[in-house]
Structures are given as C-alpha cells and as structure tokens.
C-alpha cells in the first residue's frame, strides 16, 4: 500500500503540471454526467414515479453509482487504458519489476480530473438525501458506505476484464464499455424498471444491482423481510473481484507465452 501512495505522489505531481488541461477535463467531467441527471429530472416532471420509485429515490440510485464510477475511474484508469501499455511495451517493464502486476498497473495512471464527476454525484447525493426522509440508523449509514465501496470494486473488476482482453487483441476493446459505461447507465436507475433478464444479469453476472438497487430496498425501507440479506448484498457484490483477478492472471500468463 505504501508503494501505491508513492506512485500516486508522482502521478499527482505529473497531473498538476498541466493545469489548463486538468481544469478543462474536470469541468467536462462535471457537466457531461450532470446533463444526464437533468434528463432524469425532466423525466420526472412528466411522470410522478418510475416503477414505483420517486425522483429523489432515483437520484440516490444515480448518485451512488456515479460516485463509485468516478472513484474507480480515478484510481483504476490504468486498467481502463491498459491496451496502450501493451502497444508501447510498458507491460514488459512491469514484468521486470519485483512487484505484483496488478499493483503496478494501478500505478500507471491516476485520473484526478474525475473529481468533476465525483463532485456532481455528491451534489446529487446531498440533494436526494435532503429530500428523502430516511431515518439514518448506524446500519443504514454503514450500508451506504459499503454500497459505494462495492461499486468501486465492481467497476475496477470490469476494467480489469477489459484490460485482460488487450492480451489477446489490441484493438476492439470498446466491447467492455457495454459493461462499464453501459452498466453505469443501466444502474443509474433502479433495476426494477427493467425486464427479468437484465435484472438477473446485473445481479448475478455483473452485480451492479448489489451496489444500489438491492441495498437501497433496505435503506429506503421498501422491504420488511430479510432486511439483513439486502443489507449484506454490497459485500456479496465485492466477491466479483475474485474472478476478475483470476482472469487477469490468466491473461498475464498468456502474454508471457505469446508475446506481442
């Protein structure tokens, strides 16, 4: 962990050198997703609720997935843009260092400008919580924290799988965005509004449902039974990272036997 902070120090130093580009990126990162939220807001001017969920409840769903996504992009960007490492041969360098490949890939990039996206998501979060009458018990607060952590880890897992593709093919990695960007777009609404297949897919395959929809059922007091299970779902979602790491290690092995 200490070594990761050393990486961060260098990366932040690097980002700070390009002030204008940093500011513009951060501003862009603030407004692009914010417009999506404005869209949601306008939708609710027409309809009182979507699938039984009010504007503020959807706003909460939206805020959590966007907070998680922005933080994971900020730290996990190294995996998101990993194919450039393969192209430029930087990955060879990583293999020459006596540290784990995953740690080192985390250390290749840090996207501080995602603070813009994070900021708008936090504003939406405050807006939602302000309008919702939630009785914040300790359990609910902890659950909210775990929801965000779970989201961060799941998105990083998706980035990792995408990065693993780069060991086989350099181009055409866009396909993983179906799950990262696509997943984020889907999960900014409660999953209940989708059909059964999509619901199941985002619960059991890529468990983004465990980040907001399922635990929110508990936080918003939408369930009366099995509260405990709904509360625990973010922790189960975190398990998603295990197969991702396995797939990654498999990719590294493949790279070592084929080269590029």
């Amino acid at each position: 962990m200490k070594i990761y902070f050393k990486y961060l120090k260098i990366l932040i130093k690097k980002e700070l050198q390009y002030r204008t580009s940093f500011i513009l990126l951060a501003v862009g990162q603030f407004f692009v997703p914010f417009i999506i939220f404005v869209g949601i807001y306008l939708l609710f001017l027409r309809f009182p609720n979507v699938g039984g969920w009010s504007l503020y409840e959807v706003a909460l769903t939206y805020a959590i997935i966007h907070i998680a996504f922005s933080i994971s992009e900020c730290f996990g960007r190294g995996f998101d843009v990993f194919s450039t490492n393969i192209k430029s041969g930087t990955f060879d360098r990583i293999l020459l260092r006596p540290r784990s490949t995953i740690l080192q890939v985390f250390g290749t990039r840090f996207e501080f400008s995602r603070i813009g996206r994070l900021l708008q998501a936090i504003i939406v979060l405050i807006y939602a919580i302000y309008h919702l009458n939630i009785d914040w018990s300790i359990m609910k607060t902890i659950t909210l924290m775990f929801m965000i952590i779970s989201g961060i880890i799941i998105f990083i897992g998706i980035f990792m799988i995408g990065a693993t593709f780069a060991f086989w093919t350099i181009e055409g990695l866009e396909v993983i965005n179906i799950f990262s960007d696509g997943g984020r777009a889907m999960a900014q609404y409660p999953l209940t509004i989708y059909n059964k297949f999509i619901r199941k897919f985002f619960t059991f395959v890529i468990p983004l449902g465990t980040v907001n929809y399922l635990p929110l059922m508990f936080v918003l007091d939408k369930v009366n039974e099995n509260k405990f299970i709904y509360m625990l779902t973010p922790l189960l979602g975190i398990l998603f990272i295990i197969p991702c790491i396995t797939i990654w290690n498999h990719g590294v092995k493949h790279y070592k036997s084929t080269g590029s």
């Binding site: 990486y7 690097k14 060879d92 360098r93 006596p98």
Partner: peptide
Amino acid sequence: VVFGQRSQLFWDVPVMDSYNLLKDIY
C-alpha cells in the same frame, strides 16, 4: 534491464522522483 528504445522513467517528473520510486519498488 535497459531497452534502448523504451523508457522506464516517468516522462513528466524529475529523474530523481523515478529513482525514489524504484528505491521503494526494489
């Protein structure tokens, strides 16, 4: 290992920062 055509130093920061990082990596 030195690859003549590939760098192991961080492009945007002073050389010493890269050296310090290597100190921790190794």
